[in-house]
């Protein structure tokens, strides 16, 4: 919790000035109070979600946060009656494969565009950048038609394909790769590495923070993606977590809020646990990509 103070950077430079203002600053209590009220707004929906997911019967509609007779029944019913674990697995596979693919291809393309000279380079860069302007909404109907013809509807491959390389990722990696000094790469070339080796052994190492940031963004984006998956997925066994959760809550759960909240909890809690471990990296990564673009 103390790392925040260190990171502002003010303390090191102007420690004395800062200390002086702190004494004067009598508003700190009010500031913390406002922030804490804000936190209550941020957190309450999750608390209520958890509370409902452990309730049963008439208590579901009760106003008490702590269930009087907490029960695991909603969770066990959910796991028994739905393919929840399958949806989890699907989401994990989709998010991991797309992330791996993007890291590989985006960084490779970014490296080539930033550091290699070949004919048509600027045209290729233009083409890729221009696709940033095309919103996904415009593509879903053509994708649906194309994928129907190819037989990729209702497959995980169909879910993943449109995201395997992203223009944003290529753009981001090009930005970072151009920041690498050419001398370093030349030195590696003189040492006998081929271009693949230079990219793999030298360039990638130097943009590690950017890679990590991209990985976080892509993983989160795919883990939570809804628009395209809900169109391309048909059967229960192919559903990703958001699609499964949406269809289950809107249909099969039959307005039983305790089940819906249990399903939502299962979708949210593991992500929060991962976030708790990597929160600093995640937050910094997001800030990094935000600044670069």
């Amino acid at each position: 919790m103390a790392e925040g103070a260190v990171k502002t950077g003010n303390v090191d430079n102007d420690g004395k000035v800062r200390a002086a203002t702190r004494v004067k600053d009598r508003t700190w209590l009010l500031k913390h109070a406002i922030l804490l009220v804000g936190i209550l707004f941020m957190i309450f929906p999750f608390l209520w979600m958890l509370a409902t997911s452990f309730k049963q019967g008439a208590e579901v509609y009760g106003i008490n946060l702590i269930p009087r007779e907490p029960t695991w029944a909603n969770f066990t019913n959910l796991l028994k009656d739905t393919d929840y674990l399958r949806w989890y697995l699907n989401s994990t596979v989709v998010a991991m494969v797309v992330t791996a693919s993007e890291l590989f291809f985006d960084s490779m393309a970014g490296y080539a565009l930033a550091k290699l000279r070949f004919p048509g380079r600027s045209i290729i860069l233009m083409v890729i950048l221009s696709t940033l302007m095309i919103p996904t909404e415009m593509l879903i109907i053509p994708w649906y038609m194309m994928f129907t013809k190819a037989g990729w509807i209702d497959t995980l491959w169909g879910v993943m394909l449109p995201g395997l390389i992203s223009a944003f990722g290529v753009f981001l990696m090009t930005q970072f790769m151009s920041g690498i000094p050419g001398d370093l790469l030349d030195a590696a070339r003189i040492d006998g590495l081929n271009e693949f080796g230079v990219w793999w052994h030298v360039a990638l190492r130097l943009v590690k923070p950017a890679l990590a940031a991209l990985a976080i963004l892509v993983f989160l984006g795919n883990w939570n993606a809804f628009l395209w998956p809900v169109i391309v997925i048909e059967s229960s066994a192919t559903r990703t977590l958001p699609v499964g959760l949406s269809l289950f809550s809107g249909g099969e759960a039959g307005s039983e809020w305790q089940l819906i909240m249990a399903a939502a909890s299962l979708a949210v809690i593991p992500v929060l646990m991962v976030f708790a471990f990597f929160q600093r990296q995640i937050v910094q990564g997001i800030a990094l990509t935000g600044m670069k673009s």
Partner: peptide, 24 residues
């Protein structure tokens, strides 16, 4: 104090699934 803590907590809704929080 607690800058990191505040930042983290305010960030939680952003990383959770939109579908899940919509139902909540």
């Amino acid at each position: 104090k607690f800058q990191g803590f505040y930042r983290t907590v305010y960030f939680i809704p952003y990383i959770t699934s939109t579908v899940a929080v919509s139902w909540v």
